[in-house]
Amino acid sequence: MIDHALSFALGATSLALLLNLWRLVHGPSVIDRVLAVDTMVINMIALIIFYGIHEGTPVYFEAALILAMFGFVSTVAFCRFVLRGDIIE
């Protein structure tokens, strides 16, 4: 049963990533694109976790954790750049 649930969830998350990609390519403003990338990172975390359950190993959590941190820092850095024209003042 878990296997079926996992194939559904992996499919759903991949579809979600494709939708994010559409927004990334299409998005009218730069901030739309950043939002798309940020959501993509979160969806990737979900994908990695589902894959970890699928493989039955907990080694993928470090990857998910690092991805979470980098996604957050890069989004904040970008927004700071838009707001102030500089990242480190």
Binding site: M1, I2, H4, A5, L6, F8, A9, L10, G11, A12, T13, L15, A16, L17, L19, N20, W22, R23, L35, A36, T39, N43, A46, F50, I53
Partner: peptide, 20 residues
């Protein structure tokens, strides 16, 4: 576990669908 996995997948998809 199966229900939680499905909830996770569904909400991820809805979030991205809303963004489009």
């Amino acid at each position: 576990v199966a229900v939680l996995i499905i909830i996770g997948g569904v909400f991820t998809l809805i979030g991205s669908w809303g963004m489009v």
